[in-house]
Design a protein around this nucleic acid. Structure first.
Ligand SMILES: NC(=O)c1ccc[n+]([C@@H]2O[C@H](COP(=O)([O-])OP(=O)(O)OC[C@H]3O[C@@H](n4cnc5c(N)ncnc54)[C@H](O)[C@@H]3O)[C@@H](O)[C@H]2O)c1
Ligand SMILES: NC(=O)c1ccc[n+]([C@@H]2O[C@H](COP(=O)([O-])OP(=O)(O)OC[C@H]3O[C@@H](n4cnc5c(N)ncnc54)[C@H](O)[C@@H]3O)[C@@H](O)[C@H]2O)c1
Lengths: 232, 232
DNA sequence: GTGCCTTTGTGAAGCAATGCACAAAGTCGA
DNA sequence: TCGACTTTGTGCATTGCTTCACAAAGGCAC
């Protein structure tokens, strides 16, 4: 039986931890702006909305960056988390599908400030191609492969209708992209080695509705039957 | 020691299961449109992008709705999942903050089709108030409480800048709302009994960047040190 | 120095979710 | 009616994540 010997800086950081690091980073940036020099796990955990033991365990996966009796140096921790997440370099992102959502994303300033530079906007609709949005001109979807290669795009955001998403996905993967953020409500099929993250707003609302219903009724109405009262 | 006796329709559905039900529902709706009458756990799992044992276990939390040797009746399963999620009723949703993102959400047709009716759009900016978007007129944020009460809003979407989000959140909770979908990059403090779900696009990109960096380098650059090479 | 106080880092226990593997249930053709 | 075949529903082992609780580390006052 093979047992992994845990090391000081174990390379395998749990997914759950990776997903929280950006949260810590955001809280730390706020503190840095307010001039805070050091912070305890307790306070940082509070600001990030997690439990302090979890925070300490998460940070311990990156290394031993705290000082007992004192806490963590805010600037140093910002740097370490940023480095771990790969935010010390900047990333070229292309947005495919410049409709309602694609436009909102393109106009959003919060990406650039985190090192995500929008390097291309692409759409299949000739009425949209040529529009200038947030300083960029929308290019035709036919240019997808060439834009990806010329501008070193490594992350693609898919904001097309569901029907085109898989096709766009296949093309960007063929062009060498291995990180995709998908807003279309479809399950994308991708080969191993490609990471897809999805954001589905309608799923979030459905989860809220589930809990809301429980709060109101203590559960769904009409347990086992069809609306007309006939059990199948 | 108290041990819960598992029942045919155990009322405590695991969170992980609830989060996947909308996925199954979407896959089932696709099948229904294509005229499929029954589906096996294997096929449905494939369409939803999960493992079939997981799918069966998830569905078993709702009840025993399959037929051995055959599979699940598509229409019946759609109804059962919808009922469980609370989608057999419709929900009035208000969007607070009608900027880039709020507009995209308001214009999106995918909510109404799932029983989420946009019942109000609110903004604090007088230049935005009065705009007509997707058939609704934007109202002033001062009307928040009255809109919630008059239109029976039970889910609020917060799409304001981060600085206003907590304040909006406090107000909607005071007005009786207990389900919130938050797009602002802040941790909202809420009392017990209030559900908040958050969508943070920039976190998703950061997670992608983390994995992308690993694929490229096998890990972050300059393990323990500051950029200038001095260990703290 | 020395000792007190604070806070980290981490074993270990507890809990939740996953995935395997198969008996039981039901279908369908002969 | 029966037997072969398919597919569900679930017990169980496993994995992964969370939380507790505390020894060890380090700062700081005197
Ligand atoms: N708008 C929202 O709030 C929202 C919410 C949840 C999910 N979504 C999903 O996000 C996606 C985009 O939504 P939207 O509201 O922006 O839709 P939209 O119809 O406004 O925009 C889609 C854009 O994609 C373009 N397009 C179509 N096929 C293309 C292709 N092959 N290559 C490049 N571009 C192509 C279209 O020309 C259009 O401009 C949809 O899949 C939608 O379901 C949107
Ligand atoms: N646009 C995106 O793609 C995107 C991506 C990720 C996160 N976000 C987040 O979503 C939120 C909205 O983003 P946006 O791009 O639409 O911003 P925006 O500035 O375009 O829109 C914000 C709107 O909220 C309104 N507002 C401000 N204070 C208010 C209050 N107290 N009550 C009601 N309305 C108020 C403003 O008048 C404005 O119209 C922000 O928190 C942003 O960080 C946006």
């Amino acid at each position: 039986m093979i047992r992994r010997i845990p090391q000081a800086r174990d390379r395998g950081i749990p997914d759950a931890t990776v997903a929280r690091l950006p949260l810590y980073l955001r809280a730390l940036n706020g503190m840095a702006e307010r001039g805070t020099a050091t912070v305890s796990s307790e306070d940082l955990a509070l600001a990030a909305g997690v439990n302090s033991a979890k925070l300490r365990k998460d940070l311990s996966h990156l290394g031993s960056y705290g000082t007992r009796g004192v806490g963590y140096d805010v600037q140093y921790l910002i740097y370490q988390i940023s480095r771990e997440l790969g935010l010390t370099q900047d990333w070229a992102v292309a947005i495919v599908g410049v409709g309602n959502l694609g436009r909102a994303l393109a106009n959003y300033g919060g990406f650039a400030s985190r090192g995500f530079r929008i390097a291309g906007l692409l759409d299949a609709d000739p009425h949209v191609v040529g529009d200038r949005i947030a300083g960029l001109v929308v290019e035709h979807a036919d240019e997808l492969e060439s834009v990806i290669k010329k501008r070193g795009v490594s992350i693609v955001v898919i904001a097309t209708p569901a029907t085109s998403a898989q096709q766009v996905c296949d093309r960007v993967i063929a062009a060498g992209v291995t990180s995709i953020l998908n807003f279309a409500p479809v399950v994308l099929a991708v080969p191993d080695g490609v990471d897809v993250r999805k954001v589905d707003l309608s799923i979030e609302l459905q989860i809220l509705a589930f809990h809301e219903q429980r709060k109101a009724n203590g559960g769904p109405i009409m347990a086992e039957e069809w609306p007309d009262g006939v059990v199948m």
